[in-house]
């Protein structure tokens, strides 16, 4: 009992001086463990799955921009070998057809890009090809938007403007079931 007495006599206030140190310790812990990781990537909307066979509609050959990638990561664009670097420009020219050539798309609304790869294609190559094809559309949207609204195409634009642009140049990128010739690893 005597002990409590001595305790009572003491000043019963907790010293808050070390509070800052404790907070600092926690702060440093969170500073170290923090990863303000940004996840970026190519956003893709897959077509819904259907068990039915897709009905084959005959498309005019001039409206289809076929891109084939084989297991050796080689490209065949409209039945001719091509490089990934030139893909974007060719796709843009195909979609818009500024010179009204008879072998390119009738108009952006009719243009269809068809991408087909092999199961043995490297993901690296596949993504590079996809990136170029998406890039072609992105650039065309930017150009159209710049002409019409004086600013590049972005998600901050009003929905109506975005829709108008996407109606003008709809992105039709169809992916066929891959072939199975190459070796998978």
């Amino acid at each position: 009992m005597a002990k409590t007495k001595t305790r009572d006599r003491m000043n019963n206030e907790i010293n808050a001086g070390s509070m800052a140190d404790i907070a600092f310790l926690l702060l440093i812990f969170f500073l170290v463990t923090t990863t303000i990781a940004e996840d970026k990537g190519i956003l893709v909307k897959l077509p819904p799955w259907s068990d039915e066979e897709p009905d084959i509609t005959k498309l005019k050959e001039r409206n289809v921009f076929s891109v084939l990638v084989n297991a050796q990561n080689q490209l065949l664009v409209r039945d001719e070998p091509a490089r990934i670097g030139e893909l974007r420009e060719r796709a843009k020219e195909f979609i818009m057809n500024p010179a009204n050539r008879p072998d390119l798309a009738e108009g952006p609304k009719n243009a269809i890009i068809s991408l087909k790869n092999d199961r043995g294609t490297d993901y690296d190559t596949y993504l590079a090809v996809y990136n170029e094809l998406k890039g072609a559309y992105d650039e065309l949207w930017d150009e159209l938007s710049e002409r019409r609204y004086g600013e590049p195409y972005s998600d901050e634009m009003p929905f109506a403007q975005r829709k108008a642009i996407r109606d003008e140049i709809p992105m039709v990128l169809s992916e066929a079931e891959p072939t199975n010739f190459g070796e998978e690893n």
Binding site: I42, L43, L46, P47, P48, R119, T121, Y126
Partner: peptide, 21 residues
């Protein structure tokens, strides 16, 4: 290679998870 990626994509489509990145 794309084989395994394709299998995953097909499965995602079948599970109706269509937004991918």
């Amino acid at each position: 290679t794309m084989g395994i990626v394709q299998d995953v994509k097909t499965k995602l489509r079948k599970s109706n998870q269509l937004k991918i990145n």
